[in-house]
């Protein structure tokens, strides 16, 4: 194991993250190479969203480190967006929020920016939806609009937390197409996914979490019945009497 190699985008070193004194991700070590397309899988409550929040910096590690390569811009689509759909905004206004890092608070949105927003809407299949109020969108259309915002953000590292929940098959196919396109452009993409068929079909790498890392490597070797069985056996509930974790050599979870 050689932490922080030159081509690592994210490096976890003995990372433990959680809430209060309870660990949700336990002693994770490994790295996500630049340009990787990684699926994070595992049962409910296994720490997938917590790990993503830690990578974005919204949640601080309890111990260990989560290091992101210098000069990496980051885009994040949370599982539960705090988007207020009753706000009187049009679809273009929502997508144009993605220009924030480029234009900031006061930078004027130029013709090229409006072009980028229009291109993004076309790429997600929402051509002609720009002037619609956001409260008129269906769930799938809203998810497409949020993907358009990710496109506009033009980030090196893209984190998606369960982007395919309650979305129909055609939309999933289109969104997978966008993710593969990002992968082709050399961006690093980390996606929390529940559908294991999708993982086997489209994601080269997978990380199976069950609070501690169960397996990490090529999807075909990670998503196996044996591994899934092991993952299901983990203890989801918090135990206030759980023994304190003593310092010990971290189980190496990386194959990447």
């Amino acid at each position: 194991m050689n932490p922080r190699t030159a081509d690592a985008c994210i490096t976890f070193e003995d990372l433990t993250v959680g809430y209060g004194s309870h660990a949700a991700v336990h002693h994770l070590t490994g790295q996500v190479p630049r340009g990787a397309l990684l699926a994070v899988v595992g049962p409910n409550g296994s720490g997938k969203s917590t790990l993503i929040k830690c990578i974005t910096g919204l949640l601080a590690p309890m111990s260990g480190t989560c290091h992101i390569a210098a000069r990496t811009s980051l885009a994040y689509l949370p599982q539960q967006s705090e988007l207020d759909c009753s706000f009187p905004a049009r679809v273009v206004d929502l997508v144009a929020l993605g220009l924030w890092r480029k234009r900031g608070l006061l930078g004027r949105h130029r013709a090229e920016d409006r072009g980028a927003v229009a291109d993004a809407l076309r790429a997600v299949g929402l051509d002609g939806f720009g002037r619609r109020p956001i409260d008129s969108l269906s769930g799938g259309q809203l998810q497409r609009a949020l993907f358009a915002r990710l496109l506009v953000q033009d980030a090196d590292l893209i984190l998606l937390d369960e982007p395919f929940n309650a979305i129909d098959e055609k939309t999933i196919r289109d969104l997978i197409g966008l993710i593969l396109h990002w992968h082709g452009e050399g961006r690093t993409v980390v996606v929390v996914v529940h559908d294991l068929d999708l993982v086997r079909a489209h994601f080269p790498q997978a990380l199976l979490l069950a609070r501690r890392p169960i397996a990490w490597g090529p999807s075909a070797e990670v998503v196996t019945p044996q591994n899934m069985q092991r993952a299901r056996q983990f203890q989801e509930a918090w135990d206030d009497d759980a023994p304190w974790c003593e310092p010990s050599p971290a189980p190496a979870g990386d194959v990447a």
């Binding site: 994040y76 967006s81 988007l83 706000f87 929502l94 006061l106 953000q153």
Partner: peptide
């Protein structure tokens, strides 16, 4: 006028604003 974009962002999607800006 100066804070317009941040005001709208904070109303529309506060979590997003937090992920791109400290404002």
């Amino acid at each position: 006028v100066l804070l317009w974009r941040a005001l709208v962002g904070e109303c529309l999607d506060p979590l997003f604003l937090r992920s791109v800006s400290g404002l």
